[in-house]
Design a protein around this nucleic acid. Structure first.
Lengths: 254, 254
DNA sequence: CTAAAGATGGTCACGTTTGCACACTTCTAC
DNA sequence: GTAGAAGTGTGCAAACGTGACCATCTTTAG
């Protein structure tokens, strides 16, 4: 982990530290934590208990690094709540976003395949509740708990499909289409079938990293989309960006 | 499957059909089939038996389609021997190769994640021995057999890592570097630490599909690599291409 | 054996897409 | 207000894809 501190930390510190959550199954047992919104039936609290030793519940404030590229890879993470961005930095300093994870996702799984160093960094995009599971504990739990291994396999499959889609997107589509696709996927993040929705806040630099192009290109296309009425900045100054899905879809299907 | 015929087939037919292999554990039991060369300990014959109903051993001759994009996805494949190419065709007819699998790999796993149609095609690049496992049989076997689920999870993790690397490659590198990387990975296919090796046979069109660029670009860079002594056509007319890994590496690290 | 058809590879001209550097605007802190 | 940082718009040169043409080699049909 980038800064594996578990202390409570004082009010203001340079790098905010994650806060360890104690497992308190007895307390608050009348109101279990809400299940992930991904449509999976799964109680992370049960998960926590079945893994036994070698796991730790952590809280990361927004923008904090959960793991950093190059760190030793000795554990797997499970995202209970929040959103996390996965990024890679190239040898010559370019940065790319290879995924945005929502709750119910695992990350850092490369460790289980024998990767000894992290190949990417994970950063909290919101306040995040995370489970940190030692590699060995994870392997053991996968053998013991069918519920867990089912969940894990399902996640790996989904992630595989997403990587495949992203790769194909890169191979086939121009940056304009890729940007359109990224905006659409952000708009539908969680909700389905909504004709237009508002994306919280996202600077062009971040969009560029996600799409795999430069910020200037994003600027260019965003203006184009705006002139064509595919998006608008109705939100005002707070960065709220409204996406008209049906219109943007035209870009994709050209 | 593209043409799910299981009959032996006559000597000459328009579309060659896969040949079903009967499981004969009793016969030839003195000499079990060789294990995959991937460094995994695994006897596909045992695998075959533990799955029970719902699996079928098939033989596909070189160049035959094992599954086709758009087909219903009702089974998973396991590649016992041979090499398989995964390709995707875009709406406007462009073709891309998203992976080359060697023995010990699974494919068509998307079915397990609920994909009802194949998102890619799988074509035999050599004569291939393949296990076709019904979706339900696979799910059951994953629950029963730890050896299998370990193997499957390990495969998914490796594949994930590979997709991630390929995606990052696309995001960061120019087509020249991507071509260099593709050649290097082909050269190291199976063997490690060999300073120079020969790639079997591969037309520029295929290379272009793998790298994600056009054939004319591949031709251009191949000539450049040749002039710089990074590769040579020593093999002669049979298409043998010799790759000098240490030299080509220079391209990557620029 | 030979001619025709097909596949592969080298090259080029042209228009498009892309990344980079720089100029500009908006926001924020003091 | 002013300085600096963060975010945004734009011109231009390099990288790229497209489509074409031709040479070479292989395969097929007769």
């Amino acid at each position: 982990m980038a800064s594996p501190r578990e202390s409570k930390g004082s009010t203001k510190i340079a790098v905010p530290a994650p806060i360890e959550q104690k497992s308190r199954r007895t307390r608050n047992s009348t109101r279990p934590p809400p299940a992930p919104k991904n449509g999976r039936q799964f109680d992370p609290q049960v998960f926590l208990d079945t893994i036994g030793e070698g796991r730790k519940a952590l809280l990361f404030p927004n923008k904090q690094t959960i793991m950093a590229q190059g760190d030793p890879a000795d554990a797997v993470f499970y995202l209970r709540t929040g959103k996390v961005r996965l990024t890679v930095v190239s040898k010559d300093g370019k940065e790319a976003t290879i995924g945005i994870l929502s709750d119910g996702s695992f990350f850092g799984e490369g460790a289980l395949a024998g990767q000894s160093l992290r190949m990417s960094s994970a950063t909290a995009m919101t306040d995040c509740a995370v489970l940190r599971i030692e590699k060995k504990a994870m392997v053991d739990a996968l053998h013991r708990e069918h519920t867990l291994s089912d969940l894990f396999v399902a996640y790996l499959l989904t992630r595989n499909i997403r990587y495949e889609e992203d790769l194909v997107d890169q191979l086939f589509n121009s940056s304009e289409k890729r940007l359109a696709r990224a905006l659409l996927m952000l708009a539908h993040f969680g909700k389905e079938g909504i004709p237009e929705s508002v994306i919280p806040k996202l600077c062009q630099e971040t969009l560029a990293e996600m799409v795999g192009t430069t910020r200037s290109r994003v600027s260019f296309f965003m203006n184009r989309f705006r002139k064509l009425g595919f998006i608008d900045y109705a939100g005002g100054a707070e960065g709220g960006l409204r996406v008209h899905s049906s219109l943007l879809n035209v870009v994709l299907h050209d």
